[in-house]
Design a protein around this nucleic acid. Structure first.
Length: 896
RNA sequence: GCGGGUGUGCCGGAGUGGUCAAACGGGUCAGGCUUAGGACCUGAUGGCUUAGUGCCUACGCAGGUUCGAACCCUGUCGCCCGCACCA
């Protein structure tokens, strides 16, 4: 059998029979297994192979368990690479994308992943992005999508703005270019409105990995605090009538405020310095700071810089007049963009105050020696007793947070505030290959939404890719349009949507991919969703996974669906590495899945990648390991390809092998349920070894057949093509891919037999030794000494004891006081377990008959193989042996 | 700094209170079978020892709980990942 040819053969048969199609059958139990759809880069890498092999094994398993399984695939096919290719190679992005989809799909089919291809979704098609636009309009009408001027992240290389989530360590997530800040008018989606629900919802995601949940919590970044207003005064203490708001989580330190800083982008800065002698210097400072990149500004351990504004403010707590500064360490994006500074109790303020020699005052006492602002080397950020704080003195600072907030509210200079780090999602992109934002700008009517019936607003095709500016703007036909409201002349929005919009709801489209009236059919979506198992990379923890959750909630509030969370279970698969590093072109350690398939066939690649590590852990690619899997699969296949001649008599290994089979079913089933796929394969390997080891006369033909039949079923989620071929060779009907998953019978799992295995193991070891000796012609007779009597005696006594009393402690005591030597250490080890679970007594300890049986078999084997004679009666042991065998344990081999 | 995770033989990884020198696979070594092949089969693979067997050491490090700990608790160190001048 050629594994690759065999795979292709069965793939064609599956396709013809259409066995993987999901039915919108509302009565049957559904299971929605979803993988993060790929960006079609044209080739499949090992990360894909891992992701989809996990999903496929699971989808196949669930299908075989009788679920109505939805297992779809699609392509996240808008995005920059296609457009960059267009610029570079003068290709059409559409053709480029279609070519790539074709390529990647061929490879996916070759791996035998059991998708329902009828439901394929491609985000670049007008039939799909029409609904992006439709949803956008719904959001727009609800105020969830809006345009506003703002300070945005700009990537000069990609020539577009980026969402917050797309800035990684101050650089563009895609090209790693340092991000600049710019003031621009941009489209946003009001995800912040859902911040609270998104945060609370995390607690309900019981089956999500902890790290992903933590990342989302941190990203949303909720903090409770107080907004405090300060009145601004001039040098003489005269009120200017202006107020400044600050956000703090530590209102207890209010009495320690000695100055206040604005961020350089704060709009009040310019107002306060206008026409003063400070104007020139401050402006210079602000300009220089803004010019610096985010990376530079947020570098670790960076010295803080600032500039005095020439104005002051009044601390409402003590009426003190303190200076106003602008500083580079205050961030416009967080809180109000202004910070009340408490040098003694905040490290950043401390550093700043030291540098510019600003006053410090202790307001919270630390335990131990009293704090001295002059001697302090760092701020004290811990808890303690309030001091220098008027009426709040001697209060615990935790209580003071509450009391001072109450007091501020009463004074009308403060309020409780909940602050989030999460910011609204910036979705407009100044690029071509994306969904056009369906609005127009009319001189008369302003921003006007397109009419629904005009959708889709198709991407223009008469554009030039110059590499400069947004190509969409080069299409006059597209830009110049009519206002949907007044029919007058208007300009069309040329920005396109972030591709993360596309992927925020694609999993809904799979339920009714051809619907041309709605983005998705509500009934079907309510049937299939939420996704039961989602699988993908952890890199989407705060991007895609948060957006998709948001979309679900927003669409729910639009009445389009009836659930709150899209993904019930999430698995983030680990990286695939080679030589200890992530596979990458630059390191040159890439393993091409296609080469592996040519050499070994898809089953080997799949099984290796599932077996080599737990799905969520890092996986080190190992060529030798792959060869090992290939051998395992051949060994398995050979069981049916070259069947042994079975006898139609009941053999002595019957029970053992059936027990092993049921144990395997149990292990594979349980492992699959927990997505521990490596362990499932592990169990299969053990079964194959066990089947390989028995002898013809040991098992009845029917038993043998049944074992192979079930083994084939168990193998099929992992190595479906080989399993099909095996199924076929066994003359089974239909496809094993949709065969019924076997149930295991706990009663058939022969615990006794399993315990025997150990014994057999040791006997076998002895046989091996005998073999060696036999070869050397050194023995004529072999005596096997069995000393197992003690076990049964002991067990009996134990049973009696347990029957008398249930006081385990007492038994323990009695036992420890008794003469251990007479029992031996073996027994000592055994006791507590017996106490723990007396019912296992008969299971753990073999009955004498079984043990003798095994030994008899071993004896026969040895005798026939080596034409020697073997004794194993205790009585035959010589006195000498008895003496040496001070501690009888396992059967021992005596060679005369 | 904060948060999440992790640490077991040559390697990947089992094992989460007792029958454990540690499953299964890979590698290596020895042997078998062979129309010699990257196929298949058997055995060995912590240390010291034996006729059989047994003993010692080991699960990052240090303590603790327990009759008994790789497993539970405390502290500590290393590694990986995420966030980070978030007021």
């Amino acid at each position: 059998m050629n594994p690759k040819e065999n795979a292709i053969k069965w793939q064609k048969k599956w396709e013809r029979a259409g066995i993987f199609k999901a039915k919108d059958n509302i009565k049957k139990n559904k299971f929605y297994c979803l993988e993060m759809f790929p960006y079609p880069s044209g080739y499949l890498h090992m990360g894909h192979v891992r992701n989809y092999s996990i999903g496929d094994a699971f989808a196949r398993y669930k299908r075989m368990c009788g679920f109505n399984v939805l297992y779809p695939m699609g392509y996240d096919s808008f995005g920059l690479p296609a457009e960059n290719a267009a610029i570079k190679e003068k290709a059409d992005p559409k053709k480029f994308t279609e070519k790539n989809i074709k390529g990647i799909k061929e490879q996916q089919k070759l791996l035998g992943w059991s998708y329902d291809w009828d439901r394929e979704v491609q985000t670049y098609s007008p039939e799909y992005y029409k609904w992006n636009q439709w949803i956008f309009l719904k959001f727009f009408k609800k105020g969830l999508a809006y345009k506003k001027p703002g300070l945005i992240n700009w990537c000069s290389k990609c020539a577009t703005v980026l969402a917050n989530e797309q800035v990684v360590k101050g650089a563009c997530w895609r090209c790693k270019t340092e991000v600049e800040l710019k003031h621009l008018d941009q489209w946003y989606i009001n995800i912040k409105k859902y911040a609270e629900e998104l945060l609370n919802g995390i607690d309900k995601l019981k089956y999500w990995p902890e790290n992903v949940k933590t990342m989302q919590r941190n990203w949303i970044g909720k903090s409770h605090g107080t907004t405090i207003d300060f009145e601004i005064v001039d040098e003489n203490g005269k009120r200017t009538g202006e107020k400044i708001s600050t956000f703090t989580t530590r209102p207890d330190t209010l009495f320690g405020v000695t100055y206040l800083v604005f961020s350089v982008e704060h709009p009040m800065v310019a107002k306060l310095i206008k026409g003063t002698k400070f104007e020139k210097e401050v402006k210079k400072f602000v300009k220089e700071t803004i010019k610096k990149s985010i990376i530079e500004r947020t570098a670790e351990g960076k010295e803080k810089n600032g500039c005095f504004l020439g104005k002051y403010f009044i601390n409402p707590a003590n009426g003190e007049k303190c200076p106003l500064w602008v500083a580079d360490y205050a961030l416009m994006e967080y809180g109000t963009g202004a910070v009340m500074a408490v040098p003694t109790h905040d490290q950043r303020d401390f550093e700043f105050a030291r540098k510019y020699d600003l006053p410090m005052r202790i307001v919270i006492s630390a335990p131990g020696e009293p704090l001295d602002p002059k001697k302090m080397k760092k701020a004290y950020e811990g808890n303690g007793m309030m001091v220098n704080s008027g009426q709040f003195d001697r209060m615990n600072n935790g209580k003071a947070i509450e009391e001072i907030t109450k007091w501020l509210i009463k004074q009308k200079s403060g309020k409780r505030t909940v602050n989030y780090k999460l910011r609204d999602w910036l979705i407009s992109r100044q690029r071509y290959w994306g969904t056009p934002i369906p609005v127009v700008y009319c001189d008369k009517c302003g921003i006007v939404a397109e009419k629904e019936e005009n959708l889709p607003i198709k991407l223009p095709t008469d554009v030039k890719f110059t590499g400069k500016g947004n190509p969409v703007t080069t299409s006059a036909k597209f830009v110049n349009c009519k206002c949907p409201k007044c029919q007058g002349k208007a300009r069309r929005e040329t920005d396109t949507m972030d591709t993360f919009v596309d992927s925020s709801w694609y999993f809904l489209r799979y339920c009714s991919p051809k619907d041309n009236k709605k983005p998705f059919n509500k009934t079907k979506v309510n049937y299939w969703l939420p996704v039961d198992q989602y699988i993908g990379g952890v890199e989407h923890a705060v991007g895609h996974l948060l957006y998709a959750r948001f979309f679900t909630k927003a669409l729910r509030d639009l009445g389009l669906l009836d659930f709150d969370e899209p993904f019930t279970k999430l698995l983030t698969q680990g990286m695939v590495t080679k030589d200890g590093a992530k596979m990458s072109k630059s390191i040159g350690n890439i393993v091409d899945p296609m080469q592996m398939i040519d050499k070994y066939g898809p089953d080997t690649v799949r099984v290796f990648i599932l077996f080599a590590a737990l799905p969520e852990k890092e996986l080190e690619w190992n060529d030798q390991g792959v060869a090992g899997i290939s051998r395992f699969l051949f060994r398995t296949y050979n069981l049916v390809d070259e069947p042994r001649k079975q006898k139609k008599e009941t053999g002595n290994k019957e029970k053992t092998l059936i027990g092993k089979l049921h144990r395997t079913i149990q292990q594979v089933t349980e492992s699959l349920d927990n997505l521990e796929l490596n362990r499932a394969i592990n169990a299969l390997m053990e079964l194959v070894s066990a089947v390989n080891r028995y002898r013809e006369e040991e098992v009845h033909l029917n038993t043998y057949k049944e074992i192979l039949r079930v083994l084939t079923i168990l193998l099929s989620p992992f190595a479906p093509h080989i399993a099909e071929e095996m199924w076929h060779k066994q003359k089974q009907k239909g496809f094993v891919s949709i065969a019924k998953w076997p149930a295991y019978d706990k009663g058939k799992i022969d615990v006794k037999a399993e315990a025997c295995e150990n014994l057999i193991g040791s006997v076998m070891a002895d046989i091996a030794k005998v073999k060696e000796l036999a070869k050397l012609d050194k023995i004529k007779e072999v005596k096997l000494f069995v000393a197992s009597e003690w076990k049964f005696k002991f067990a009996k006594n134990m049973k009696k004891l347990l029957a008398k009393t249930r006081d385990v402690g007492k038994i323990m005591k009695e036992f420890m006081q008794s003469d251990l030597k007479s029992y031996g250490q073996e027994i000592k080890k055994m006791i507590p377990r017996l106490i723990k679970d007396p019912t296992r007594l008969t299971e753990t300890i073999l009955d004498q008959k079984t043990e003798l049986k095994i030994l008899k078999a071993a004896k026969e084997q040895i005798e026939s193989e080596f034409s020697c004679k073997l004794f194993f009666e205790k009585a035959e042991a010589t006195e000498e042996v008895k003496a040496k065998q001070a501690m009888p344990g396992k059967p021992a081999l005596i060679i005369n």
